[in-house]
């Protein structure tokens, strides 16, 4: 499903572009993880995301392989939930985030109380049912720094989440957007799992002198910036 893989200028160099979506309950740290990954920053008082945010980040896997992520950071608040399919459609990979200190945002005595991990599980289910068949999903238990400082703050055991991730076929990391712990590793692990070589001859074929973003079999809508065009009046009858 690598929708945009192309050979680079250097012999053997590969450049691939993938859509990544972040999902998870509000305040678990989706935007913070993205901010850490893209700008290496952290913000103690982030505002809750409205609608969604879009960012890109490029990483090198090795000397010859570059992966660019197009990142859709969604809003976790319940009222935006119905927008999610708009963002995970055609996504190649997803990071589903929960907060390891958050057993339940609702009061414990409520029988329907959900932990942020339960919420994450329901996102995973939805992705596996409705998103791309080959989507790569990573589960991220965020705010690991809080637990490192105060172990009794942990509400969700790493072993439980890991067992679930293994069963569901997900990558799994405990992360901290605050200390940057495991953030890069998370995205690198995803990049490594993405099917860089699957584009095959069809995906790489006929790309002529096209530069920039498009890959695969796509048509470049900015011909001025690529190969010469045939003038109008060329005949196709």
């Amino acid at each position: 499903m690598a929708n945009r893989v192309q050979t680079g200028t250097r012999p053997g160099a590969r450049f691939a572009q993938f859509k990544l979506v972040l999902l998870g309950e509000s305040a678990v740290g989706k935007s913070s993880l993205v901010l850490r990954f893209v700008k290496d920053q952290f913000d103690d008082y982030r505002e809750s995301t409205i609608g969604a945010a879009f960012l890109t980040q490029t990483i090198s896997l090795d000397d010859t392989t570059t992966v660019k992520f197009e990142i859709w950071d969604t809003a976790g608040q319940e009222r935006y939930k119905s927008l999610a399919p708009m963002y995970y459609r055609n996504a190649n990979c997803a990071v589903v985030v929960y907060d390891i200190t958050q057993a339940s945002k609702m009061k414990k005595w409520l029988t329907y109380a959900q932990s942020s991990l339960d919420k994450a599980k329901s996102w995973v289910k939805e992705l596996q049912r409705q998103a791309n068949e080959n989507i790569i999903i990573a589960l991220a238990g965020n705010k690991a720094d809080l637990v490192a400082a105060q172990p009794d703050k942990r509400a969700i055991q790493a072993a439980d989440a890991e067992a679930y991730a293994r069963e569901a076929g997900l990558l799994f990391f405990e992360t901290s957007a605050k200390t940057a712990d495991n953030v890069r590793d998370l995205f690198t692990a995803i990049a490594k799992k993405l099917p860089l070589d699957q584009a095959g001859p069809r995906g790489l074929g006929g790309r002529g002198g096209m530069g920039g973003r498009m890959g695969g079999t796509g048509v470049d809508l900015r011909p001025g910036e690529s190969s010469a065009t045939q003038g109008a009046g060329a005949c196709n009858c």
Binding site: N90, M210, D220, T229, G233, C235, N236, C237
Partner: peptide, 20 residues
């Protein structure tokens, strides 16, 4: 429109469809 579309975004084709 058909004739003058050919060649605009590459040789030989005059129309596109959106993927997906």
């Amino acid at each position: 429109r058909h004739l003058t579309s050919v060649g605009l975004f590459g040789p030989g084709f005059g129309a596109v469809i959106p993927k997906w």
